[in-house]
């Protein structure tokens, strides 16, 4: 997204430092919100995978060995131990998801507020919508 003012002289509005600050804040929230959305997507995918595996693992005999992938190697560990490791990573992923969702909502909220302020001042000579 780019904030280009329309070169229509009728809409020639004076830009103040305050406006500039609002535009900056909007621009930062906008790019952060894109990042957060991408991160959330990848973490949610991981979370789904781990959740699925965890459900399967709970049905297994604790002593039975499974291959647990760590970096590039597979470790043969008892199912009970792997379950603990999986639960730890589940917890981590869940709290990450929560933090990111909260941040995304804050970004959206901030952007909505700034949009109202900036559109009120600049009308059609500013474009704050997504898409090229």
């Amino acid at each position: 997204m780019r904030m280009l003012e329309n070169d229509d002289a009728d809409a020639d509005t004076l830009v103040t430092l305050e406006d500039q600050r609002n535009i900056n804040a909007f621009s930062k929230l906008n790019s952060r919100s894109d990042e957060v959305t991408a991160e959330l997507e990848s973490i949610k995918k991981q979370l789904e995978d781990v959740e699925e595996v965890e459900t399967e693992m709970e049905l297994m005999d604790e002593e039975e060995e499974v291959m647990y992938k760590l970096d590039s190697s597979f470790l043969r560990l008892p199912a009970g131990e792997v379950l603990t490791l999986l639960q730890a990573s589940l917890e981590k992923l869940r709290s990450q998801t929560e933090t990111l969702e909260k941040e995304r909502d804050e970004c959206e909220e901030g952007m909505t507020k700034l949009k109202a302020v900036l559109y009120a001042k600049f009308g059609t000579s500013i474009n704050l919508e997504k898409g090229d």
Binding site: R2, M3, D7, A9, V15, I23, N24, S27
Partner: peptide, 23 residues
């Protein structure tokens, strides 16, 4: 994030100078 701000300021500057010239 700092660069983002400076780029936005400069982009707005470009647009304002351009508009001023058109006018």
């Amino acid at each position: 994030s700092w660069l983002r701000d400076q780029i936005t300021v400069t982009e707005v500057n470009v647009a304002r100078v351009y508009n001023w010239d058109v006018k």
